[in-house]
Amino acid sequence: MTQETTAGTELRDFVKFSAAVTGFSEFDLWGTGQAEAYHRTAVDQVGQESLRAALASDPSAAPADPVVASIIKLWYVGVWYGPEQVGRTDVAAWTAPGRSGAKPAVAEGGRAAEDPSAPPFVVSPDAYTEGLLWRAIGAHPSGAKAPGYGSWATPPAVEDHQETEVR
């Protein structure tokens, strides 16, 4: 097996595992155009070994390997939150789009100056717009993939959640 096909297999395995933990199909994940960039990011941030260990874990295990949590969040919003930032809603608050103001003050990078963890980062501008979160909530990323004038007046269709739809 050549190196290239090994890399291809690893990427496919990454996407297959990601589909199980994100709840989106492999088609949806490839459809973001981010598979390579996310795989590369995960390898760069935690190393091959930790990533392989995470991908070998039971996708339904809870609490998950913190690396798995990082991978889920990466697909959902395009931000790499390091495994050491597990559970940090204060950090997440600043990385969310929308008006700022009531959030706790933080230094650049979404963390306090004395915080030793690596700051979160957006993998690329289109990683933001390809976040799966927005599809999960029946909306579109704030500032991209607009749904059209007046569409906001229609009842919501929350994906995969027909039973609670208001019609």
Partner: peptide, 22 residues
Amino acid sequence: LLKAVWEMFRMRDRMNLLIRNP
């Protein structure tokens, strides 16, 4: 026609998904 524009935007999203799949 206004609603057709919404459908057009949805098709944009569907096309994007297809086009990025190897």
